[in-house]
Amino acid sequence: MNIFRLTGDLSHLAAIVILLLKIWKTRSCAGISGKSQLLFALVFTTRYLDLFTSFISLYNTSMKLIYIACSYATVYLIYMKFKATYDGNHDTFRVEFLVVPVGGLSFLVNHDFSPLEILWTFSIYLESVAILPQLFMISKTGEAETITTHYLFFQGLYRALYLVNWIWRFYFEGFFDLIAVVAGVVQTILYCDFFYLYITKGMSGCALPA
């Protein structure tokens, strides 16, 4: 554990909690892509199956449980409790275009051809592109609420901090996970355009160009 990894995890947690609180407080999920949130729930579910097979630390286990619980709560709020406010007409990204190729790739390129490992690999690949329905939705409507941009900022910051964490671990621990690093780089790149707009538009409800 290093400071970049810890702040990365906390950024990730901040993003998840910001989104959950926004929906809860405003009683609305307008502008939020339910499809991205479903994909994130699928990411956490397939990645954290190792909760049943290996114990790493109390921190590790509790964070996993919190991420899973929050992502399911978010999906519940969008598709059940506040379904009336869900902007399904603008959430038109075809998720099968992500899930199918990512599924195929996780069978072909993985560390070990075993069920748990393939599911872990699937989750890593899927996470790197899971935000696309959300970005697609914003590009369709042309704008995002301030709080939604904060959510995206913390999501992007989390992966950027993980990249620094991996550089750190490579130099100081000799740790290098090619699959995680490549997917992490892809994921971070997807946020670059957004980061630029977030900072130049004064971190407020930006009108984001398509």
């Binding site: 990894r5 995890d9 990730h12 990645r47 190792d50 097979t53 290996s54 790493i56 590790n60 964070m63 996993k64 991420y67 560390h111 070990d112 051809f113 075993s114 748990l116 490992e117 872990w120 993980y162 964490n165 996970d177 995680a180």
Partner: peptide, 10 residues
Amino acid sequence: KNAILTHDEL
């Protein structure tokens, strides 16, 4: 091979 790999990151 086929040992369960441990992933210590989240």
